[in-house]
């Protein structure tokens, strides 16, 4: 007796669907010229990431990231690479906040920032906040490679939802390596699908969070002093001025971590940390 088997629908494994979104990689390279001034031999915007040179003081180059359109949308693959070669000083800001928006397909968007700072160079990486709009799904990575004598000032701010809106899904990882060793590795995962994020151990109702990282050989002589930011009375979830701490890392750097009800109050806390750490 034979069993009549139903015809098996043989389907090859689905190839990774071509992302519906756009792919763009913008690049900045800062290089010291013979006189020691910082030049920008590479300043290549791409897609939504337009780059604009700003007039700067002697010895420093300034770049502003100008978003030419709303991005990242679901499915987008964006990357931004900046290299401050040995002996340069590069200062990067943004013209406006970045808003992660849902795409047509519900696909995840990615945004990868890769920063490299050479010997004796300094990079100030001070973008505007990243806002996670309702329904969006963004995975962001920021990877920093520092030479032993490199200096870095890096600010990262995330806002969960536009005003009065629920947040999208936002997963962000920051990895900072210095002289080949990992100095800092932090991941945040907020929004739908992330367990435990909307709790009193993590955010307690706050909708803006951020970090200010300062790394440099000067911290080898004396670690930064611990400082509580905001001086806020406890127990005002979601409506207080926010709170934070500035503290030394295990290696030569200091990190301010802060949470606040909104972007404005978050920036106040991080500015307080910046003043404290730079003197």
């Amino acid at each position: 007796m034979t069993l009549a088997l139903p015809p098996r629908a043989v389907r090859p494994p689905a190839p990774a669907p071509p992302s519906a979104g756009l792919h763009a990689t913008a690049r900045i390279v800062a290089r010291a010229d013979a006189a020691g001034a910082t030049r920008l031999p590479v300043l290549d915007g791409d897609g939504p990431l337009a780059l604009r040179r700003i007039r700067a003081g002697a010895g420093q180059a300034r770049v502003c990231v100008v978003s030419a359109m709303s991005a990242p949308l679901g499915g987008d693959r964006l990357a931004l690479e900046a290299t401050a070669e040995a002996g340069t000083a590069l200062h990067v800001t943004a013209a406006a906040a970045t808003v992660a928006l849902p795409g047509r397909t519900g696909e995840t968007a990615t945004y990868d920032v890769r920063l490299t700072v050479g010997e004796g160079a300094r990079l100030d990486w001070l973008p505007e906040p990243l806002i996670s709009a309702r329904g969006s799904d963004l995975r962001m990575t920021t990877t920093v490679e520092l030479a032993p004598t490199a200096r870095l000032v890096l600010r990262e701010e995330q806002v969960l939802g536009r005003s009065g809106e629920e947040t999208g899904a936002l997963r962000s990882r920051l990895i900072v390596r210095r002289a080949g060793r990992t100095l800092l590795d932090q991941e945040t995962a907020y929004g739908p699908g992330g367990p435990g994020w909307d709790t009193s151990a993590v955010l307690d109702g706050n909708r803006a969070l951020g970090q200010l990282l300062v790394v440099g050989p000067e911290f080898e002589d004396g670690p930064a002093e611990v400082r509580l930011l905001g001086g806020a009375p406890e127990g005002q979830p979601g409506d207080g001025p926010g709170q934070g701490v500035l503290a030394p890392l295990a290696g030569p750097g200091a990190l301010a971590t802060a949470v606040a009800p909104d972007a404005l109050r978050l920036r106040r806390l991080l500015d307080e940390a910046a003043r404290a750490v730079t003197g």
Binding site: I175, T188, S200, A201, V202, V226, V245, A247, V259
Partner: peptide, 15 residues
């Protein structure tokens, strides 16, 4: 290895 952070645990532990 995961690196999941909890900002409030960090801030309040230091305080």
């Amino acid at each position: 290895l995961p690196a999941a952070s909890a900002p409030l645990l960090d801030i309040t532990a230091q305080a």
